[in-house]
């Protein structure tokens, strides 16, 4: 059992990633990934669409029209979600919302526990984050350590007016005093379960999967069900 659960899939650079299968095809399955045939889908495509629409509206409400917001997704799936949210908000407001990606690999507190890995992309909108309201976007909120790393990374890039957190699934088990401002779905889980978010852009379909952790003692399975190489 890993000492430090974290919330999202390990970020991997866009170059090292196996290309996603074409949209609409069968769910992608990457090497080393757990077999999801035993997994139960707790959210399907329409649920995810509704959740994101609701979050988009909440962001607009809570930020009074969102005139100075910047959406920053945490690679890999957080970036996809940030882009979708930006598009939703643009549909509602009729103006583009700056969005980007924030890689947190170099700020992780578990770097020494795993082999060095490829970096994800950090791409800020041209005007940066200074004085803005940054909404961090990720797929799963778990221990809170990824968000902690994201706050550190953000601090080195500039000084936002405020930072908020939007999350698709909050599965609980926080290890740090961190909470989300916008939650797509609260999903009570046990530590013996894994939560996996699939998005069409990355995985060929939209779904949130709940699965039992492969419980082979000493097998070294990581929190998201992937082998640590």
């Amino acid at each position: 059992m890993p000492a430090e659960p974290a919330e999202s899939a390990a970020p991997s650079g866009p170059w090292s990633q196996t290309p996603a299968p074409p949209s609409g095809g069968p769910p992608g399955r990457r090497e080393g990934e757990q077999d999801h045939t035993s997994a139960r889908a707790v959210l399907e495509g329409p649920d995810i669409r509704r959740a994101l629409t609701r979050i988009a509206h909440e962001i607009l409400e809570r930020t009074k029209g969102g005139t100075d917001i910047v959406l920053l997704g945490i690679p890999t799936r957080g970036v996809t979600l940030a882009e979708r949210l930006a598009r939703r908000i643009e549909e509602v407001e009729g103006r583009p919302v700056p969005w980007g990606s924030l890689d947190i690999t170099m700020y992780r507190d578990d770097l020494r526990l795993r082999p060095a890995r490829a970096l994800g992309r950090t791409e800020l909108p041209p005007d940066g984050v200074d004085g803005r309201l940054v909404v961090l976007v990720d797929d799963v909120l778990f221990s809170g350590r990824t968000v902690r790393a994201a706050l550190d990374a953000l601090g080195d890039l500039g000084r936002p007016r405020a930072v908020q957190l939007a999350i698709l699934v909050d599965r609980g088990h926080r290890q740090l005093p961190i909470r989300a401002d916008y939650v797509g779905k609260n999903l009570p889980t046990s530590l013996r379960e894994t939560v996996k978010v699939q998005l069409a852009e990355n995985d060929g379909r939209d779904a949130v999967l709940l699965d039992k952790r492969a419980d082979t003692p000493g097998a070294g399975r990581e929190r998201d069900g992937r082998d640590p190489r």
Binding site: G13, W15, M106, Y107, L119, T122, D156, L157
Partner: peptide, 27 residues
């Protein structure tokens, strides 16, 4: 080939650090 590409891609990301206000990573 994959090692070399990984180094170049990583360098590409890290090149941004030189343009930031804090030119340092805690890694």
């Amino acid at each position: 080939h994959s090692d070399a590409v990984l180094i170049l891609d990583t360098a590409e990301e890290l090149a941004q650090v030189g343009d930031r206000s804090v030119k340092k990573l805690p890694t």
